[in-house]
């Protein structure tokens, strides 16, 4: 690694040095590739981001570039294919994410979440105020917009033949609960150690 850093003049730095950024997330003992559950969680957190801001996949690609992760995510199709590792998707690819691919997606999610910190906090405060007044969540324009988009994305992309998906699809309320729980997770991603916390939490109950 130090070698790669010293050869600054080299116009084509090695692939390895480019991926140093992934060392921000620890490797977990015994984890070689990701389980379907991990893949599902990563895709859902990205889905919540998409519901938060329009043009989200553009932002995600730009973030990939910013973090120099192009060797893992070079374009829209690659991003989509990685996300199709989520077993809940209609277009589930049945490929497993490698640890590096999962790390890359996690970093992108956390960086995007950090950019949206103010909005995420606003929506969570709004939820709390609305619930204290006993009003439906739809009362708040921005919150209702987030929930509506999340439900539409979820309906459009997830496979209703899967029991868990069917469970969420069966009522707007269940989908709203899922969307709010993901919003809470996004808030935690915005913190100083949020990225690491989210990454390690993906493997809770997965390791021996």
């Amino acid at each position: 690694m130090s070698q790669a850093a010293s050869v600054k003049s080299e116009s084509n730095p090695s692939k390895r040095s480019k991926l140093l950024v992934l060392d921000n997330l620890p490797n977990l003992p015994g984890v070689q590739e990701c389980s379907p559950r991990v893949q599902q969680k990563i895709d859902l957190i990205l889905l919540a981001l998409e519901a938060l801001e329009l043009g989200s996949s553009e932002h995600m690609l730009a973030t990939a570039q910013e973090l120099e992760l192009q060797s893992i995510i070079d374009n829209r199709v690659t991003l989509w294919r990685l996300r199709c590792s989520n077993p809940w998707r209609r277009s589930h690819s049945r490929d497993s994410l490698t640890v590096n691919q999962a790390k890359a997606l996690t970093m992108i999610a956390s960086f995007r979440a950090r950019k949206l910190t103010v909005l995420i906090r606003q929506l969570l405060v709004a939820r709390q105020q609305i619930q204290q007044k006993g009003l439906p969540l739809e009362q708040h324009f921005r919150l209702s917009e987030y929930l509506e988009r999340f439900r539409a994305h979820f309906r459009g992309r997830m496979n209703s033949k899967r029991a868990k998906v069917a469970f969420y699809l069966s009522s707007d309320e269940r989908l709203n609960d899922l969307a709010m729980s993901l919003l809470g997770q996004l808030l935690f991603c915005t913190g100083t150690a949020g990225m690491q916390r989210f990454w390690v939490s993906l493997f809770d109950g997965e390791v021996l």
Binding site: Q196, V200, L202, F203, G205, V207
Partner: peptide, 9 residues
Amino acid sequence: LHLIPVSRR
């Protein structure tokens, strides 16, 4: 910061 995932066991 010291994070370890909980194991099944």
